[in-house]
Design a protein around this nucleic acid. Structure first.
Lengths: 228, 228
DNA sequence: GAAATAGTGTCTCTTAGACACTATTTC
DNA sequence: GAAATAGTGTCTAAGAGACACTATTTC
């Protein structure tokens, strides 16, 4: 366990009923899902990027702007996770926090003073922010089949093995290679490029790009809407 | 278009940065999905039930308590929809609103001063509350396959035709009867009772109750996690 | 050639959806 | 018997997952 934020710093920022906007910025890093965190200076706690919410600007606009500011570039995808107010659990002391989950492509460098931390190995985060990370990952998992989240976690051109690895990362389980490719084929989500990439040993892989041709989320069968 | 809330009333409630908690309380009513609204008195606008958010009490607790207070009974299911702050769009004038979607079983009487209104026919709601209703219905649709939402919209005992009707209501499209029942069977979500219900003409229907025996949301195949 | 990774062809088993029924009630 | 609703048996086509391959690279 790491230390909690010092009460004095927290109180200083608390207004009559301040709200915060918090950012769970996710990326793939090999076999791990990572989150952008700010290590606490001199023994203070690690935090997610957060800002005091300005009531005058729309959440959607503010979240994108804040993400761009803190990540050095516009997020490849972003969505609201929700609001939470579990007591005392926020570094700002804000009464209410609204969190967003953003996605950056693999290989994005963390801005100065920040670092990537594996979602499975987050220590020292305030309880409310810890809960945000958990909820954010669930949002990614829930929406990956209706939003191009996996594709946004990769560069514009990627191999099918990379794409499968990201899907497996988000799902938290392995997928069958042939099935994965067949399904991808029938969904018309990607198109092949003329490029190939050779990495270390093994046959070079063809590069693909995201190019959806059918509407997404259309043809769910009864079974999956029904049960489970 | 109906009138907007009178500015005087709205301003009176606005604190330095007040937040509201809003409730989208849904139920099935025949072939329609309905929402609990409060018709405006003497030419004021229709509103969803809302309260000024007390920073001291947890959102989950406050939402359940508020739903119970306004519906006359505990909600059969409830979940947070999200936060929104699109400007001027709330009857309270609150800077930020957190909305919840609750479910009541079909046939629940509206409390005095309130009424059910079809979600497809909501007029005079403030823009922010209108957006909440839209988002709330999407939450129901998204989660109906991982939460017992359809079952909570029915009495404890129901016929399979009723259940299918609720599923169709939430999905917004018809389902194949034999497939529906087969899928229900293989999901082990319901168990038959010894009772039968005869209504008007036609063969009486057997009554079932919700009795899940398998974990839900387990066996999604690659296909549906992949595409769409 | 060995090892490693990319990519494919075929088989089987499950199941969604369609169709066509049977069953039981009210009128 | 007609009309209406409940409930079932069977067929077919699609596709998920398994298996066993082929292909192309580095060492």
């Amino acid at each position: 366990m790491a230390e909690r934020p010092r009460p004095s710093a927290a109180r200083a920022l608390r207004g009559p009923a301040t709200s915060s906007l918090d950012l769970v910025c996710c990326a793939a890093a090999g076999r791990q899902l990572v989150v952008l965190v700010q290590p606490g200076a001199r023994g203070t706690a690690t935090t997610l990027p957060w800002m005091v919410l300005n009531p005058a600007s729309a959440l959607e606009v503010a979240s994108v702007r804040f993400a761009r500011e803190r990540c050095g570039r516009a997020p490849a995808w972003i969505a609201q996770v929700g609001a939470s107010n579990e007591g005392r659990g926020h570094p700002s002391g804000a009464a209410l926090s609204v969190s967003f989950v953003a996605v950056l492509p693999e290989g994005t460098r963390p801005p100065v003073g920040m670092m990537w931390a594996a979602v499975t190995d987050l220590e020292g985060l305030a309880p409310r922010q810890q809960a945000m990370v958990t909820a954010a990952v669930l949002v990614l998992r829930d929406r990956m089949d209706i939003a191009p989240i996996a594709f946004r976690m990769l560069a514009a051109e990627f191999t099918l093995s990379e794409l499968q690895r990201v899907y497996e990362l988000l799902l938290g389980r392995g997928l069958h290679k042939a099935s994965f490719r067949r399904a991808l084929e029938s969904a018309s989500l990607v198109e092949a490029t003329d490029s190939w990439r050779s990495e270390g040993r093994g046959r070079p892989a063809q590069l693909f790009r995201y190019a959806p041709r059918k509407r997404r989320g259309v043809k769910r069968s009864v079974r999956f809407e029904l049960l489970r």
